[in-house]
Design a protein around this nucleic acid. Structure first.
Length: 421
RNA sequence: GGAGAGGUAGCAUAGUCUGGUCUAAUGCGCACGCCUGGAGAGCGUGUACGGUUAAAACCCGUCGCAGGUUCAAAUCCUGUCCUCUCCGCCA
């Protein structure tokens, strides 16, 4: 959520941000109008409240019954006026909130302006794609042939786009999770085990609600929401708290499954495990001071890259343009790994600086020093990494001519074998 | 799931029965000052958050949350969430 003071004082900054994000700007004018209305009504009702408060005090001391009754009657009328104003106020505030919470974050000035994902900028590519002396197979062929990936039974259990990992396939994924968490722990992130179901407010604070309601699974009976990413519970770990400056920065990492109800285009990404309603992810998250978030973003990017490097994967770093960065983000880097079997660059990580946008929604503040005013923290999040696509990259890059898959060095101890055959 | 007790500003407690000197007190902690060679003790001062405002004072709001009664609610009423204890059930 944006600071209403900022919207009020620098509406052109917000308007330009919306234009750069290819978002409509009409709500901005409505916000400004509602804001004026709100403060106008507020002023009136506060004055009346002040009057009632002081007269009520007088009433308690009044001896003369007639005069007392007169004042009470007078205040009864004032109370009615206040009630009427409050009704108006609530209406205005509801509309104001609806609009302001739907405004995305203002992109960082360094985020390239662009109209679509085609305008994202490839900053660099690390490593050269492996050269094969045979035709590399896609993971859905490799996995099924090896008996470590079962689409049919996944569909039997849950429908299209679900799958089962068997034996070494399941072990490989678990190995990746464990290794990634260990790596991030070494990098200074504290591992957390989190709820996979959260309440509404938790999703609101992370910027998922109300705008992305359609992408979430919701248990109506108990009002539990399945997390679409660990970013959601991680953001709220310190919700409503005032941290002290010497606690910052706080680094966390967590493994969670992610549940997404996205309406997938028929025919797109249908094959394999690239996109599903359920996937696993290891996530990094950070709370820090405003002046350090730029540098921390670079650290988090490096930490995510370390996963790709450790696995010996060829990857490229992209900087997302204004129309492709997430709702809460100011600046985002994507990591894409090369998958030779399906011949695609796969997005395995998205590392973002959200500035104070999430902190404002989640009410996460810190005090610079004793006695100082509280300020909002900055939050950053980054995948480290998304599991299915990492699995794809590992399977397809480490395949051999006979269809077996060499286990990357760093995972061998966890998988318990050198080659999956 | 059943019964009971509770939720007050960093922590711990008072206030609730009996509505108005509650403009929320007290202790601890913390910060600053005095004192000291230095520290401690002692003394003094300060110490929730949000809104309003150019900023501040004043002012308005917040005693888990949401409603209601009243001129006036921490206090009375209703609903709800959470915590603890006991019972039941369960991995």
């Amino acid at each position: 959520m944006l600071d209403i003071n900022m919207v009020r004082n620098q509406p052109e900054v917000v308007r330009q941000a919306l234009v750069n994000r290819s978002e409509p700007t009409d709500s901005l004018d409505a916000i400004l109008a509602f804001d004026v209305q709100r403060r106008d009504i507020l002023k009136q009702s506060e004055q009346l409240r002040a009057l009632r408060n002081s007269v009520s005090k007088e009433i308690s001391k009044m001896k003369d019954a007639t005069a007392r009754e007169a004042k009470i009657a007078e205040m009864r009328a004032v109370g009615d006026q206040i009630a009427a104003l409050e009704v108006d106020l609530k209406k205005v505030e509801t509309q104001l909130e609806e609009l302001t919470t739907a405004i995305p974050n203002v992109p960082d000035l360094r985020t390239p302006v662009g109209l679509s994902e085609d305008d994202n900028v490839v900053l660099r590519t690390e490593g050269a794609p492996r050269q094969f002396d045979f035709a590399p197979k896609p993971h859905w062929e490799l996995g099924v042939a090896l008996g470590i990936l079962d689409f049919e039974r996944g569909v039997k259990l849950s429908g299209t786009r679900f799958y089962v990992l068997n034996g070494a396939g399941a072990r490989l994924q678990r190995a990746l999770i464990t290794w990634m968490l260990d790596l991030h722990t070494q990098q200074g992130y504290r591992e957390e085990y989190l709820p996979f179901m959260v309440k509404q407010q938790t999703l609101f604070a992370a910027g998922q609600l109300p705008k992305f309601k359609d992408n979430l699974y919701h248990d109506v009976e108990e009002d539990f929401w399945m997390v679409p990413t660990a970013e959601v519970p991680l953001t709220n770990l310190h919700g409503g708290e005032i941290l002290s400056a010497d606690q910052l920065p706080l680094h966390y990492c967590a493994y969670t499954p992610c549940f997404r109800r996205e309406k997938m285009k028929a025919g797109s990404d249908v094959r394999g495990i690239k996109r599903g309603h359920q996937f696993d992810k290891v996530e990094m998250y950070m709370f820090c001071t405003p002046e350090s978030s730029d540098a921390e973003l670079e650290k988090m990017l490096a930490d995510a890259e370390a996963v790709c490097k450790g696995l010996g994967l060829t990857y490229r770093v992209k900087q997302l343009c204004t129309s492709d960065i997430g709702f809460s983000a100011r600046m985002t880097y994507d990591l894409e790994v090369w998958a030779p079997g399906c011949g695609e660059w796969l997005e395995v990580s998205s590392v973002s600086n959200c500035g104070d946008f999430q902190a404002r929604r989640a009410n996460i503040k810190y005090r610079r020093e004793t006695g100082a005013k509280v300020e909002l923290v900055h939050t950053l999040n980054g995948s480290g990494l998304a599991l299915p696509r990492t699995m794809i990259a590992v399977m397809e890059n480490y395949q051999q001519v006979d269809g077996s898959i060499v286990v990357p060095d760093v995972l061998r101890a966890f998988v318990g074998m050198d080659v999956i055959r």
